[in-house]
């Protein structure tokens, strides 16, 4: 049996009286590429933000290697350093160059000396094809390039699992490909453990090892992509896929 990295137990989240997530339970194993699909407003992004502790949970727990990280007993900064996150809106640091964006976390959080941090940053920038742009600032590059830098920034921390919050949703259609290519190579060549919230069904079907379908704050169905996409058990899953794949 493979090693559990993240276990989400009975997680629920309410904003005021509105329950966004209801009793979510699932596990991420080492090397898994899990995609979370579902309609807008189904709580996918909130779930991801809860996992990275950007939102506080209402109830439930998040176990990282069996240890509960959600109650503030362990240092949330140390935990976040091991769980990378790539945002829909990139969130690159506007005051820093591409290279510094990929170095600052290593230097300040992991306390890696500058020359080694630079080497590592360049390694990952190379991987995403952004090494030529090290001297540019975020407002000088395109959306697809920003997202690739954001992926490199997350990778440079050498996290154990990488969370993607709709990484291609804010991009022009012609830029989606370059970002998906990078993610695909991370999944297949580097065996990175990934948790991806996405509307890219082809990515979910071809690259992921596990698909979670969410609706109205609960997990309606989960399983292997072949099963979810060809023979979903749940009527809602079927309706959702029919709607989105026929577009």
């Amino acid at each position: 049996m493979s090693e559990h990295i993240l276990e989400i137990r009975h997680l629920s989240k309410t904003f005021g009286t509105h329950a966004v997530l209801k009793d979510i339970d699932f596990t991420v194993n080492k090397g898994d590429v899990t995609t979370i699909i579902g309609a807008s407003g189904s709580g996918k992004s909130t779930l991801l933000r809860c996992i990275n502790l950007l939102e506080t949970l209402t109830t439930g727990e998040i176990l990282f290697h069996g240890q509960d990280v959600s109650k503030g007993k362990i240092n949330s900064s140390a935990y976040r350093a091991k769980v990378g996150m790539v945002f829909q809106s990139f969130n690159l640091f506007n005051n820093l160059t591409v290279l510094s964006n990929c170095m600052i976390g290593q230097q300040k959080v992991l306390k890696i000396p500058a020359d080694e941090a630079k080497k590592r940053a360049l390694h990952y920038l190379n991987k995403v094809g952004m090494a030529p742009y090290i001297n540019a600032r975020p407002d000088q590059i395109s959306g697809g390039q920003k997202q690739r830098v954001a992926i490199a920034r997350a990778l440079a921390m050498e996290p154990e699992v990488l969370l993607f919050d709709e990484p291609t949703s804010a991009l022009d259609p012609e830029m989606v490909g370059e970002v998906l290519d990078v993610m695909k190579s991370l999944a297949t060549k580097d065996n990175m453990t990934m948790l991806v919230v996405t509307h890219e069904m082809s990515f979910a079907r071809e690259v992921s090892t596990h698909v979670v379908y969410m609706a109205d704050g609960i997990i309606e169905e989960e399983g292997k992509p072949e099963k979810i996409f060809t023979n979903p058990e749940n009527q809602r899953t079927r309706d959702f896929l029919k709607r989105i794949l026929n577009e």
Partner: peptide
């Protein structure tokens, strides 16, 4: 998003402020 980006790579409040937000 700038705060969240900094938090997501494990920076604490002082680091976020000093290196990202205040500049």
């Amino acid at each position: 998003g700038q705060f969240e980006g900094a938090k997501a790579i494990g920076m604490n409040h002082w680091q976020t402020m000093l290196y990202i937000i205040l500049p």
